[in-house]
Amino acid sequence: MPTTTLPPAFGGPESPRNPSRRTLLIATAGAGGALAVAAAAPFVATLTPSERAMAAGAPVEVDIDKLAPGELMVVEWRGKPVWILRRTPDMLAALARAEPQLADPQSGVASQQPEYARNAHRSRNPEIFVAVGICTHLGCSPSSAFQAGNPTLGADWPGGFLCPCHGSTFDLAGRVFKNKPAPTNLEIPPYKYLSDTRLLIGADDAAAA
């Protein structure tokens, strides 16, 4: 079988006429790397303070004016999906019906929500539900299963969310059902209203409505 000899630039033997070729290539590569780092530094320096803050997980402003009843929108905050659901009157009524089936209906695990979300609807405004869309079991993202009496989930299903990875279920306030792999309710991020139609995800204060 014929053998293949690599040229010097790809790891083959050095040319007898140019024994320093390999050294030159290494030195050139090192210089190129240094130039790349030097070129990157001015680019980072040109980022505005707001861009650097956003990259670090700064609050995200969201317009919910066009969010219709029963609709769910998803935004990103700190690399996480954040759900914003405009609940219908039927959805709100389903929260009370779900409570006997829930593991923590009173939101007793304080770390899972700010104090202003420790209520039956787990939100500042009963109509608008905001939650981190990550299952508290192993980090999958649950899918919406809003239809009450969903054939897959049983006739007594009140509507909510289903994690496709291991079957954890959550009601329309992100509260976990009993005997499921997920140990706690979904996380509610800090947020506040800037107006009736604008939210700021990732920040709150005592004066926020």
Rank of each mutant, 00 (worst) to 15 (best):
L6T: 01
P8A: 10
P8W: 10
F10E: 02
P13F: 01
P13K: 04
P13W: 01
E14T: 09
E14F: 01
S15K: 09
P16A: 11
N18M: 03
R21N: 00
R21W: 02
R22N: 03
T23R: 09
T23L: 04
T28C: 05
A29F: 06
G30K: 02
A36G: 04
A38I: 11
A39T: 07
V44K: 13
A45C: 03
T48V: 12
P49E: 10
A53P: 15
V60R: 14
A68V: 14
P69S: 14
L72H: 07
M73V: 15
V75E: 14
V75F: 13
V75Q: 14
W77I: 04
R78N: 14
K80S: 15
V82G: 07
P89C: 11
R97E: 13
P100I: 07
A103P: 06
P105G: 03
Q106S: 02
G108V: 01
V109P: 02
S111E: 06
R122S: 03
N125Q: 09
N125E: 07
P126H: 01
F129H: 04
F129D: 02
I134D: 00
I134C: 00
H137T: 00
G139N: 06
S141Y: 00
P151E: 02
G154F: 01
A155D: 04
G159P: 09
G159S: 05
F161C: 04
C163L: 08
P164L: 05
H166S: 10
G167L: 07
S168W: 09
T169Y: 01
T169R: 14
F170N: 09
G174H: 00
K178N: 09
A182H: 11
T184G: 01
T184F: 10
L186T: 01
E187R: 10
I188P: 08
P189S: 04
Y193D: 05
I201K: 09
A203E: 12
A207R: 14
A208N: 10
